[in-house]
Structure formats: C-alpha cells, structure tokens
Nucleic acid binder design. Structure first.
Lengths: 177, 177
DNA sequence: CCATAATAGTCGTTGAAACGACTATTGTTA
DNA sequence: TAACAATAGTCGTTTCAACGACTATTATGG
C-alpha cells in the first residue's frame, strides 16, 4: 500500500482549515464522483438510486411487507418524503400499498412481481457498476474503509436503527471472489 | 417492545451483494449523516453548503477572480449549473460578475466585502461543525480515511483538475490540534 | 365519554438539481 | 472572408428534495 511515501506537499497547498474538514470534503467529493457512475446506470433504466434502494429492501422481505416509515428508516439516505417516492413506484407498478387493518394509520408496502423483475434486470449492471467504482481497491482497503466509515458515523447513527445499519466490523460474507 | 427476539445474525444478514457495493453504500450513508449536520449550520445562516464552498474558493483567490467554469471545476461537488448558483449569490451581494474584455465569452466572478463577511461569520460555526462530525476520530484514523478516499476516486478524477484536488497523502498542515 | 396528545401518513409550496436546447463570441480553414 | 466548429455561459423545463402544515386514526387522562 502507500504509493509514494514522499510527495512533499507544499505548505500552503491545502485549502482546508482542519483535518476534520478535509476528511469531510474528501468524503463529499468521493461520494459525488462515485454517485455519478451509478446514477448513469440507474438513469439508463429510468430509476433513481433511492428508488432502487427501496426496491432492494422490499425484495429482501418479500413476500412480506414493511410499513412506510419502517422502509424509510432502512433506506441508505434519509428520505423526508416516502409518500411521493412510493407514489412513483406504485404508478409504475413496482410496489403495492395496503392499509393495515388493525391500525388503520399505517400503510404496508410490498414489492410486486414487476418490481422484482426490475431489480433482477438491474442486478448485473449494479454489480458491474460496483467494480467500476471501487474495483481497483484491494479487499483489505475496502474493509478498512468500511470500518472507518462505520466508526465515523457511529455517534450520529440513531441507536434505534442500529440493526438496520449494524456496526459489525467483520461481516464475513464468504462468497464473492 | 420486543425488538428482535433473535438477533442471531442469520447468514443473510448482510444485505450487500459485494464488498464494493457495501463500501459505496456505507460511503453514501456516512456522507448523508454528516451532511445533515453541516446543512443545519449553513441553513441557519441562509446559505447552502455548495454556495459556501463557492464563496470559500473565491475568498482564497481574493482579490482576484475566477471564470465561471474555473470556479465550477474547483467546487467539491460538480455543479451542473453555475449560472443560477451565482445568480443567487449575486442577488444577495456576495459576489460580483464582470465580463472579460479580451474574451467576451467568459465572465469573471469575485467575492465582495459582503461575501467575505459571511464566510468569516460562518468560520467558527464551520470549525465547530467539523468537530461535531468527525472530532471523535483520531488523527491517524482521519488521515487513513483521507488517503483511502483519494485512492478510491483517483481513477474517476479528471486529470485536468488534479491540481484542485491533489492526491498529496500526508498534508502536514502543522497547527490545529 | 370528551378533550387532548401522539402517531402515520399525505399534500402544498418552495427551492435546488439535471438535462438539454439556445445565444453569443471566438477560432479555424477553405 | 464566409462557413463551420468550438467554447463560455445562459435559460426553459422537468424532476427531486426540504420544510411545514394538514388529515385521519389511535392512545391517554380527566
């Protein structure tokens, strides 16, 4: 690891006020660059990254369903407005909504066969996209990144949803490679 | 009540298809969480993170100016539409635009005294915000994060602007502790 | 019971991002 | 120099995100 131990940065070349700010801006820019890549993929299929995420989560509980707010809590990015996100998915027949009988305030959402088809159709593109984005990093580097990111947001993560975004370090998933 | 009775991490507890995808989603979520924090700060001052960045860059070249596109290239996040971003800043008297005489296609932008005042007024809040976001990480961890992020986006970074986002690893900026 | 609060979701409005078409200016070349 | 291409920026439109107000339903406390 660590290409170039030298590089010899000039003193005034860092326009950052603090290390924390630099880390955050690097994070922002990196996210922005990688997002550009996967949005190309999703856009080609007429879908949004956020919408894909919702479908991915719904597929994982299929044939079960989730309440609107439970789904929102599991999304990668907080979504202020589930209603309209689901409106779009429902319009296109990817999800179905059903009012809960016991508690008529909640609405359960489930993925339809059409929604599953979309996710499946995207699967290989998404897989390839991941390689395009970060495939040049070694596994150990990726794992280190994941660990630091979890550590970084740990104090800002709502403990109530620690199970949705667990801080499990090792995550030995086996497969893949 | 009755949060998951099991916990028991069933094999399918990692909803990620690959390590690359996991890293990207962790990056996305972490960015989202940290962004929430600094947007609170900027929103309190009636400004956008992106706008603040533009002002920060313009202040760094003060009293000089940058062409619209040069400024856009230096921003943290690619901005599709500089025109309207600058419109808003100009409306509020934070920047000034002036057509270039030699090449009348380009427009030079510079920060005004009012713009400098805004950035200065925000400085301490921004500083504190950085601590809130990532102050709980050790310096070495932050440096490791920065290094991995640079490595992560290196193949996706336009070489033409490598100077705006240099890949210098160590960036010993001294003070700040 | 009734009043009140708390919860789950919906909707209106505003502002920003995305995408592309368009104008103005300059460079190139036949 | 006229025609064409390239460049820099602007603008129109559509879509998405943010914020808050609002409706409907259920829980709670006198």
């Amino acid at each position: 690891m660590a290409t170039a131990p030298s590089c010899r940065a000039r003193p005034s070349s860092t326009p950052f006020d603090s290390l924390e700010q630099e880390a955050y801006l690097q994070l922002w820019r990196t996210y922005d660059r990688l997002r550009e890549i996967d949005e190309r993929v999703f856009h080609a299929h007429g879908i949004t990254a956020q919408q894909y995420n919702a479908l991915r989560i719904l597929r994982s509980v299929r044939p079960g369903s989730l309440s609107t707010s439970a789904l929102g809590a599991r999304l990668v990015s907080r979504a202020a407005d589930m209603t309209r996100l689901l409106d779009k998915l429902e319009e296109r027949g990817f999800v179905a909504r059903k009012r809960c009988a016991e508690n008529r305030r909640v609405v359960f959402v489930s993925i339809t066969a059409g929604g599953v088809a979309v996710v499946d159709r995207l699967a290989s593109d998404v897989q390839r996209c991941g390689k395009d984005q970060l495939g040049h990093l070694e596994r150990k580097t990726l794992q280190a990144l994941i660990g630091i990111l979890q550590q970084a947001r740990e104090p800002h993560e709502d403990p109530a949803m620690a199970q949705a975004w667990p801080g499990n370090r090792q995550s030995k998933r086996g497969g893949e490679r």
